[in-house]
Design a binder for these strands. Structure first.
Lengths: 344, 344
DNA sequence: AGACATGACTAAATCGTTTTCCATAGCCAC
DNA sequence: GTGGCTATGGAAAACGATTTAGTCATGTCT
């Protein structure tokens, strides 16, 4: 590595002091125009680039935003939903001069705790895409006074980017109901804030429309767990009173359900209907197109980025929770048939 | 933000000098056991965490690896192939105490050039997942003496993690040939090192087996371009002498081809066969399963991480190119039918 | 006893910036 | 001529750690 050019080098060449060079390059006022020009010219000639570590050491502003994407929950960059939000978040903050850095969630023995990592790197802020909120380590992190934005998890005093799970799910139910379905089974995700909101919407909708929800229409399936989705689909098919529509936790499991149904000799949607959730890339590819909720991940990432940066740059404003609700869009797809309720 | 605890604070409490504290915490030898214990105890009590910026300013070792994933080429975190390699790379380097940081490839006007960003952040090394190698900015980057690992692009003096495109493609061709296909069309990707190797393998195979390659069996289609894949599929179908098998640049376009063929009333593989490339998640989902090359992205990420770190930590070794070739695996799938060549 | 090694600790320089405070000169007004 | 002002520039401290070159006892060897 070549020796980097420093302010001192420029100072020597220009025959001025280091502080003068610093001022000239930072466009301060107490420098004559001529000197400023000359110094900037020399700096350019030498390909001078400031040293990030040094400037940040003094100023305390790192312009680095930590990102927590917990491997512990089996979630990583390959989780499309979070990858989309992250991608949009990254673009947003980079546009504003920030940079993201992942928190190390590995299992290596001398790994620092999340809180320690934040201190060590002196992050300006933190995005929690996905984490196991039960962990002490994560709870401790939430206690800190670092500006934090979280996706679909709310904690007083932090920013929450909430997808409108209740409303979105209600609209999905409405579409299914409008197409004549009355016996609707729900293979839902595991217990967390997101799952609860969707489940509440399902239950409320069913209740308000006086539809039965027999116990055997409800199943818990971890998100993106293909094998479990397949097994549960078979369990549903074995029921004496089969539902006309099955809801899945996400698009991936819905497609797996689709495959299981087809293997069992059923046609979708002619014989049975299904719906997913999220609006992942796979729905543009698989036929029939899955009816789903297309989550506005782009907006989620943008909002998270902008709110977080506001909080970083103006800490005095909005000391409490800021919740941004992002609506998804119903993708009508083709996997929910129009049927006549009387025939059921 | 609370005031961070520094060495000075600990020194004051323990009534020793800052240097003594530093040595105690770094487990240096010239410290009495008693003092070392005491200092470490106090540090723990105060939740002391060293300041990254300060320690790195002196040592010049940042343990940060820059990652270039060019948005310019339309490639970002949502590109599954690169996301997989990155994910595996990230795990590998984090395990060894490194951290990744993306180079800013945004269009914001005051963005630094790649080289400047590397200087500014004083990266220890660089991973180029995907970049437009035509750009001056990228060429300049390759001139630097920063340790660099590149995926599927070779430059003397840097590390190249090369997928075995020629060999893999040859084996895919062999499978197709063995199943009786003789008229094989190739919708290939755009011109780059990867495409060329695969294309060379295709041409060589066809030549060696004395198979005809009429011009109208060859098409250029950008990777992952669904619309173009669909249009080209229709073009192939319109040919007077239709091929029995169509190769696509990647799995995504292959699935799009599949859909187009089915819309045209053809069954895959009974009426026509297809094959993709890469082994993306979609092949586990779509039926029939696409015959493809499953690239070992996990291995690519691991090798890239380990080689790059070796180069960083032992710069004296291996000053030249290190090429690591990673073989893919033929996924037989179900989209290439067994046919009798005589009938064609 | 003198020379020398060892152990335990500290002062101070250093990394590359930023920033505060001061110095000097020139100028004007009274 | 003195006080005060502005414009321009520099000296030096600071950020928080690491590291080099010591200091000063104490112990050991010959």
């Amino acid at each position: 590595m070549k020796e980097a050019v420093s302010l001192k080098d420029i100072a020597k060449i220009c025959q001025v002091s280091v502080s003068t060079v610093s001022k000239a390059l930072n466009n301060r006022s107490d420098i004559s125009h001529a000197k400023k020009e000359e110094i900037q010219r020399v700096a350019k000639e030498l390909n001078y680039v400031p040293n990030y570590m040094a400037s940040t050491l003094k100023s305390k502003r790192t312009r680095v935003i930590g990102v927590l994407l917990s491997e512990g929950t089996g979630t990583n960059l390959l989780h499309e939903h979070f990858a989309r939000i992250l991608n949009s978040f990254k673009d947003t903050v980079e546009e504003r001069g920030y940079v993201i850095m992942f928190l190390n969630a590995s299992t290596s023995p001398n790994r620092l705790s999340y809180t320690e990592q934040c201190k060590y790197m002196t992050f300006d802020g933190l995005l929690i895409l996905c984490a196991d909120y039960q962990l002490d380590e994560v709870q401790e992190l939430l206690q800190s006074d670092l500006p934090i934005a979280m996706i679909d998890h709310s904690v007083p005093k932090h920013i929450n980017i909430a997808s409108n799970n209740f409303g979105d799910m209600t609209r999905l139910m409405q579409l299914i109901y409008d197409r004549g379905h009355r016996r609707i089974a729900y293979v839902h995700g595991q217990n967390n804030e997101v799952t609860r909101a969707r489940f509440d919407a399902y239950r409320k909708f069913m209740l308000e429309h006086r539809l039965p929800v027999p116990k055997e229409y409800l199943y818990t399936c971890p998100y993106r767990d293909n094998e479990r989705a397949s097994a549960l689909t078979k369990a549903v098919l074995a029921l004496p009173q089969r539902p006309t529509c099955i809801l899945y936790p996400d698009d991936q499991t819905a497609v797996e359900g689709l495959n299981s149904l087809q293997e069992a000799g059923l046609r979708v949607p002619q014989d049975i209907s299904i719906a997913g959730y999220d609006g992942l890339a796979v729905i543009n590819i698989v036929r029939p197109r899955i009816t789903t909720i297309h989550q506005d991940t782009v907006s989620m990432g943008i909002q998270a980025g902008n709110k977080l940066i506001s909080r970083i740059e103006f800490p005095e404003t909005e000391p409490g929770t800021v919740t941004v609700t992002v609506d998804g869009m119903v993708e009508p797809g083709a996997s929910v048939a129009m049927i006549n309720p009387r025939y059921n």
